[in-house]
Every structure is written in structure tokens, then in C-alpha cells.
């Protein structure tokens, strides 16, 4: 049993940690979406956080003696600096950009991610096309990154759980339901939208900082439009009306390609099917996203679904919220 477990963890360690990262990236996109803002900027902040950690650990800190691991407190310092830098950038970008609505905001954030990507391809400090490599490792094996990522995820879950029930969370939801009505009730839309945007940016930046160590190298391929799509798919397929949806969506969709690979490994399948399952995994992935929007328009996890597990509702339980809508500007 123990042997099985160690085998399992060493084979799937990379995947399990990636799943926690994806869940947190999905949350970073879900946060602005709580206020009704479709922002695809998360990969940009993720890339920035990663570059900060990669640069600090390779250039700023003294080189490690052979056989030692990168000190964890230094990693925390990097995460902190990444968080601060992302918060400042989010404030600078967010205040003008969040005047935009719906698809316009989505396009502006795509542009933001692309500009950052091209910049990182051309700056010396980001290592141009090669990127930064040989980022020191704080752990010996990949699965040990769970010591960092799992507490992060748990803190995020507690934070989100409290946020949805706080004054700020209710303001977010009010903005999503009807911005004009919320404004009339005295909610400052710019303040809360930028706040949500900054929270998402900080989370994405911190995940990026850890990911840079986890992946060992960091380059312009890390924060791209492809990742924007992927993270959006996590949130929409998982369910965009509760934060649990983002977490479940992020984990499931990250595991899916590996699951398909495992299915392809089953003995006795006809060769063409095995070939398709290994080579064509992303085809299936794409179609699953397209079909998911058709058959689970609310996502896999909905508030109604969660209520089945909840304690009997108190009298003040908020009524069911409207499904996600984007203003058609």
C-alpha cells in the first residue's frame, strides 16, 4: 500500500501540484468575474510574478552551494514582492481599463497579456526568447511543492468562503447583478471592480512566483493567450456562480489530458483508438469545452448543487442569483 502510494505520488506529483496551481489561477479569473467583469489578464500577472521570482532567485540571491536547496523564506519574499508588483500594475491598468464592459474589457486584457508577452520576448532582464532557466529548487521532488501550494489553496478557499459572505462580497455580487442599481444603492463601482481585479492579480502573481521554481525555467510561453483561454475554460466549465466551480474546473481540466493518456494505456484497445487518444488528446479537450458550454451552461458546480450539502438554510439565505450575463455593449 505504502509502495503504491509512493509510486503514485512520484508519477503524478507534477500533475497534482499543477492541479492546485490551476485551481488558484481559475480563482484569479473568477475574482473580477464576481463583479461581472470578464478579465483575461490573469496570465499576464502570472507571467510577471514568475519573472520576478525567476530573476530574484537567479540574479539577486547568492548562488546556492551544491547539494543545498533554495531557502523557503526567500521564496516567501519573492511571493510578497510579486504580489506587491502585481497589485501596483493591476491598479495602473485596472483604473482606466475597468471603465470598459463585457467583450471590450476582455479584448483589452487580451491586448495587455500580449503586450507583456512581446515585451518579455525582447527585454534583456527577462532573458528574451530563451527566458530564465536553472531556477533553484526549494524542494528535491516535485510533489513536495504541495507543502507550499496546498496551504495556499486552503487559504484561498477560506478567503473566498468568507469573502462571498462579507460586505465586500455582497457588493461584488450586486455589481454583477445590476451595476446601475448597485450604484444607486451607494456602491462605488470603480472601487469594488478595481479591488476585485487587484485581488485576482495578486493571486495570479503569487502562483506565478511559485510556478517559476516549480517549472525550473520561465519564458514568454508561460503567460500567453492560450493560458487565458484555458483559465477561462476552467471557470466556465467548473461553474462561474460559485468559487467552488473555479477550483473544481481548474483541477478537472488540468487532470483531463492525463486521464485521457491513462485511458489510452488500457490494454486491448484497437490501435487506431490508442493512437487517437494519445496524439489527439487536445482535440478531445477542445470538443469537451465546446460541448460543456452546451450541456452544462451553468457549469458543473452551481450554487443549487452546493446547497444540497449545506446545512439547512437560515432565514437570511440569499435568494438564488441570476446566471452569468455579460452586458451587450
Amino acid at each position: 500500500m505504502i509502495e503504491f502510494l509512493t509510486n503514485f505520488l512520484s508519477t503524478y506529483g507534477f500533475l497534482i501540484v499543477s492541479m492546485t496551481f490551476s485551481a488558484m489561477l481559475a480563482l484569479s479569473l473568477y475574482l473580477p468575474l464576481m463583479t461581472g467583469q470578464l478579465s483575461l489578464a490573469s496570465p499576464g500577472f502570472y507571467a510577471l510574478g514568475g519573472y520576478i521570482a525567476a530573476w530574484m532567485s537567479t540574479e539577486l540571491y547568492p548562488p546556492l552551494a551544491t547539494g543545498t536547496t533554495f531557502p523557503i523564506p526567500s521564496l516567501f519574499v519573492e511571493m510578497l514582492i510579486a504580489a506587491v508588483a502585481c497589485a501596483i500594475l493591476a491598479l495602473l491598468v485596472g483604473v482606466p481599463a475597468l471603465r470598459l464592459r463585457g467583450i471590450y474589457l476582455a479584448l483589452a486584457t487580451i491586448a495587455f497579456v500580449e503586450v507583456l508577452r512581446v515585451l518579455s520576448l525582447n527585454l534583456d532582464v527577462t532573458g528574451k526568447a530563451i527566458g530564465i532557466f536553472n531556477i533553484p529548487q526549494p524542494f528535491v521532488t516535485k510533489i513536495e511543492y504541495l507543502y507550499i501550494s496546498l496551504p495556499m489553496l486552503i487559504v484561498c478557499i477560506i478567503f473566498m468562503y468568507r469573502l462571498e459572505r462579507s460586505r465586500v462580497g455582497r457588493a461584488f455580487r450586486a455589481l454583477r447583478e445590476d451595476e446601475l442599481a448597485a450604484t444607486a444603492m451607494g456602491i462605488n463601482p470603480t472601487y469594488y471592480k478595481v479591488l476585485a481585479f487587484m485581488m485576482g492579480a495578486i493571486l495570479a502573481g503569487m502562483v506565478g512566483a511559485v510556478s517559476a521554481h516549480f517549472l525550473n525555467t520561465w519564458n514568454a510561453r508561460q503567460g500567453t493567450f492560450d493560458l487565458s483561454i484555458l483559465v477561462l475554460a476552467y471557470v466556465i466549465i467548473g461553474g462561474s456562480r460559485t468559487f467552488w466551480g473555479s477550483i473544481v474546473g481548474g483541477m478537472l481540466l488540468t487532470a483531463l489530458p492525463e486521464v485521457l493518456r491513462a485511458v489510452a494505456g488500457i490494454q486491448g484497445l484497437p490501435p487506431f483508438l490508442t493512437g487517437f487518444l494519445t496524439e489527439g488528446r487536445l482535440i478531445i479537450y477542445g470538443f469537451l469545452i465546446a460541448l460543456g458550454t452546451l450541456f452544462f451552461p451553468q457549469g458543473l458546480i452551481t450554487p443549487e448543487f452546493l446547497r444540497r450539502f449545506a446545512r439547512p438554510p437560515k432565514a437570511s439565505t440569499p435568494t438564488k442569483s441570476k446566471p452569468l450575463q455579460t452586458p451587450s455593449t
Partner: peptide, 17 residues
């Protein structure tokens, strides 16, 4: 379905193609 879902769906189709 609202326009956001269509957007995600079209992204999925693009990945598939």
C-alpha cells in the same frame, strides 16, 4: 445561452481545429 458561453465554445472549437 449568453454570449460569454458562445465565446468559450468558439475557443474550444479553435483548440479542436
Amino acid at each position: 445561452g449568453d454570449s460569454l458561453l458562445t465565446l468559450v465554445s468558439s475557443l474550444g472549437i479553435a483548440v479542436a481545429i
